[in-house]
C-alpha cells in the first residue's frame, strides 16, 4: 500500500519542452510506468524510443488507458492543459508548472468541483512512491527509500531535505507528496493526512508547512480529531518579515494567522511533534518512533 500512486499508475506526461523532457527522462530512468507523452505536432513519433507521442490527451487516454497525468507546460497554458486532462477523464492530475495566474487557478478549482478528479499543485514537486518506483513529478528518485513514513509538504527542495534526514535516520517513505507553494492549490494537507491515516503502510507522518494562509491550522484541527499516527512538523519562515513574499506566491505574512509561530502553536495543541529547527526533522522522528 501507499497513497495516490503505485504499481497501477499509468502515467501520461504533457508538455515535453526542455524541462519536461529532462524530467520525463528521469522518470523513465527511475522505472515508472510512463504510457503516453502529449505534445502537439509529435504524434507518430516516440519519446526516447519508448513512449508514444499523442497530439491530444483524449487520444492518449483512448489508446493507452493512462489514469494519471503530469503537466510541465509553461504557465500561460497550464489552465488549458489541466482542463484538457479533466475532460479526457484523467483521475489524478499533477501540475508541476510554476507561476500559473491565481485567477486561472480559482477557475480550475471551480471547474473540477464535484468531478471525479484530484488535482495536485500547481507549482509543486509532485509525488513519489518508492516501493513501486512510481515517480510523478520532479522529486529525485535517488534520495528516497521504501518505508513507512508519509511525507506531505508545501515546498520542493525542503521536502528533499526532510526525506534525506529521514533516510539518514533509517526511515524510508510510503509516499512523498508535494502539494505546492501557491495560495490556491488543489489537494490540501488535510486531504493527504486523511489518506495517510487510512494507509496501512504509513506508520508516521512528516508535515512541512510554510508561512502564509491558514492551511496548517486546518491540518492541525483535522489531526486533533482524526489522525492517530504520530506527526512531526516543521514550518519554514520563522524569521521571515511580514508583508514580503518569500519566493512562493503563498508564502507571505498578511495577518497574524499566517505567522510560523501561530501555525506551530496550532499544531502543537493538536499533539503534533513540532520542531523549530529544520535540521531536527529526522532526529525527532527517531525519538518519536523509538
Amino acid at each position: 500500500m501507499s497513497i495516490l500512486v503505485d504499481e497501477n499508475t499509468r502515467l501520461l506526461i504533457q508538455g515535453l519542452g526542455r524541462d519536461g523532457s529532462f524530467q520525463a527522462s528521469k522518470t523513465l530512468e527511475y522505472g515508472t510506468n510512463v504510457v503516453a507523452a502529449v505534445h502537439p505536432g509529435r504524434e507518430g513519433t516516440t519519446f526516447e524510443n519508448k513512449v508514444p507521442y499523442f497530439s491530444s490527451v483524449e487520444k492518449a487516454v483512448q489508446k493507452t488507458s493512462a489514469n494519471t497525468g503530469v503537466i510541465f507546460v509553461p504557465a500561460p497554458f497550464a489552465m488549458d492543459a489541466i482542463i484538457e486532462q479533466v475532460d479526457a477523464g484523467i483521475h489524478l492530475i499533477v501540475c508541476i508548472t510554476e507561476g500559473v495566474p491565481v485567477l486561472d487557478m480559482i477557475k480550475i478549482m471551480s471547474y473540477i468541483e464535484n468531478k471525479p478528479v484530484r488535482l495536485i499543485g500547481s507549482n509543486c514537486p509532485g509525488l513519489l512512491t518508492p516501493s513501486t518506483k512510481t515517480k510523478v513529478g520532479i522529486i529525485p528518485g535517488n534520495i528516497v527509500k521504501p518505508g513507512n513514513i508519509g511525507v506531505v509538504s508545501r515546498s520542493g527542495t525542503l521536502t528533499y531535505e526532510a526525506i534525506a534526514q529521514l533516510v539518514q535516520n533509517g526511515f524510508g517513505q510510503s509516499t512523498c507528496v508535494g502539494i505546492g507553494g501557491d495560495p490556491v492549490h488543489g489537494t490540501t494537507f488535510t486531504d493527504v493526512l486523511q489518506m495517510f491515516e487510512s494507509d496501512n503502510e504509513t506508520e508516521a507522518i512528516v508535515l512541512i508547512g510554510e508561512i502564509g494562509g491558514t492551511r496548517e491550522q486546518l491540518a492541525a484541527e483535522y489531526i486533533k480529531k482524526h489522525v492517530t499516527k504520530p506527526v512531526v512538523s516543521y514550518i519554514a519562515g520563522q524569521t521571515a518579515p511580514p508583508g514580503k513574499r518569500m519566493g512562493h506566491a503563498g508564502a507571505i505574512i498578511t495577518g497574524k494567522a499566517a505567522l510560523a509561530s501561530e501555525k506551530n502553536t496550532a499544531l502543537s495543541n493538536a499533539g503534533v511533534h513540532v520542531v523549530e529547527s529544520p535540521s531536527d526533522i529526522g532526529l525527532r522522528m527517531k525519538e518519536v518512533m523509538r
Binding site: S153, R154, S155, G156, T157, L158, T159, Y160, E161, G181, I208, E210, I211, Y234, A236, G237, Q238, T239, A240, P241, K244, R245, M246, G247, H248, A251, E276, S277, P278, S279
Partner: peptide, 28 residues
Amino acid sequence: AYVKLDGGEVGCMVNGAGLAMATMDITK
C-alpha cells in the same frame, strides 16, 4: 527571488523557497 533583511550578517544562497526560509531559520 531575493528579499533583503535589515541587520543580518549571514548572506544566504539557496535553491527553493521553502529551503531558503529554512536556511534563514537555522541561521537564526
